[in-house]
């Protein structure tokens, strides 16, 4: 399968600050990739380099078989994180302008705009000025602007930020639809469960370096947990007894349940059986790691407990939309 995007040893610095450090990447056509990482990790810089808005200091890059995106801009749809809109322009004219800039012919452009507006439930706003729309509506208009010209490669930088759950679902289904039509989709997010819901392949970026690049299934298997989640009928007060069960390394209480971390080399199936035998349980299950857990594990070098929790708080605290600025 040919590659939609490939990068080798790409590095980008801004003055003394290294934004991206030697990233290798290859994204096959038709894939749906998620770039994840905390704010300021280098996701936007990587995407801007793919878009040829920034140019790498070092390294090789090819997009849709061309040396740079400059030659194939019309085949790429891009929703930047810093999205803007011409406030005084009417929604319809803005989309027509973007369509024409992307090389679409005037003929058939208007019906196409109307059709897309209809698909995002904005059929009646094309005569309104952009500034009259709500932020969420503007965001949908911007999404339409990025896919209007039927691009083969769709790059969405933090597409879900600021959307309500209904529109988030709408956007997700539209992305799935494009992916279903064989388009390559790359999107970035710092909210990792969004990536888990949409992507089949994850690229994790931290401090400008790629720390993970695998399909979601493989990642899940590789980070197969040595952790279980148990809920004794008698409540979490029995944690001391749980800790005495064979193969259990330590126990932590979380949200009315107990997280049980197993010793190295212990088979989770057998541990579950022993736990069930030791006392009556409401629930015993394997704790599936979230991408966030995996990420924490990677960047903390396998640390657990308080250290990991502190790191989690630092990296994923729901801060108000941070500007990534030039990172």
């Amino acid at each position: 399968m040919s590659q939609a995007v490939s990068m080798q040893g790409v590095r980008k610095t801004f003055g003394p600050k290294v934004a991206v450090e030697g990233i290798d990447l290859s994204i096959p056509e038709g894939a749906i990739y998620g770039f994840i990482g905390p704010n300021g990790a280098g996701k936007t810089t990587t995407i801007r380099m793919i878009m040829s808005i920034l140019f790498p200091d070092r390294g090789e890059l090819s997009v849709l078989g061309k040396k740079s995106a400059v030659e194939s801009k019309d085949r790429i749809g891009y929703l930047p994180e810093e999205r803007g809109i011409y406030k005084k322009m009417k929604v319809g004219s803005f989309l027509m302008h973007m369509g024409r800039l992307k090389g679409l012919d005037r003929s058939g452009l208007k019906p196409r705009v109307m059709e897309w507006l209809d698909r995002v439930d904005l059929a009646d706003v094309h005569k309104k000025k952009c500034e009259e729309l709500s932020k969420g509506m503007q965001q949908k208009v911007q999404f339409v602007a990025s896919v209007l010209h039927d691009p083969d490669l769709i790059i969405l930088d933090e597409p879900f930020s600021g959307l309500d759950p209904v529109n988030m679902r709408l956007l997700r289904s539209l992305i799935d639809e494009e992916h279903g039509r064989g388009k390559t989709v790359i999107f970035s997010t710092h909210v990792m469960h969004q990536a888990e819901q949409n992507c089949d392949h994850i690229v994790m970026i931290h401090h400008g370096k790629k720390v993970l690049d695998d399909s979601l299934d493989v990642i899940r298997k590789r980070f197969d947990p040595r952790a279980l989640l148990v809920e004794p009928i008698e409540g979490t007060s029995r944690s001391h007894d749980v800790a005495l069960v064979e193969g259990v390394a330590h126990v932590t209480a979380i949200d009315g349940a107990l997280e049980v971390v197993l010793d190295q080399g212990v088979d989770p199936q057998r541990a579950m059986r022993s736990l069930l035998d030791s006392m009556p349980m409401n629930r015993v299950e394997i704790k599936r790691p979230t991408l966030e857990d995996i990420f924490i594990e990677i960047v903390s070098g396998g640390k657990r407990g308080a250290d990991a929790e502190q790191l989690r708080a630092e990296l994923f605290a729901e801060t108000p939309e941070q500007e990534e600025g030039d990172s």
């Binding site: 801009k73 790429i76 999205r83 803007g84 011409y86 973007m98 800039l101």
Partner: peptide, 11 residues
Amino acid sequence: NRVVEVILSAC
């Protein structure tokens, strides 16, 4: 307005 990056994706 931050519209510039949208435009830069097209030209």
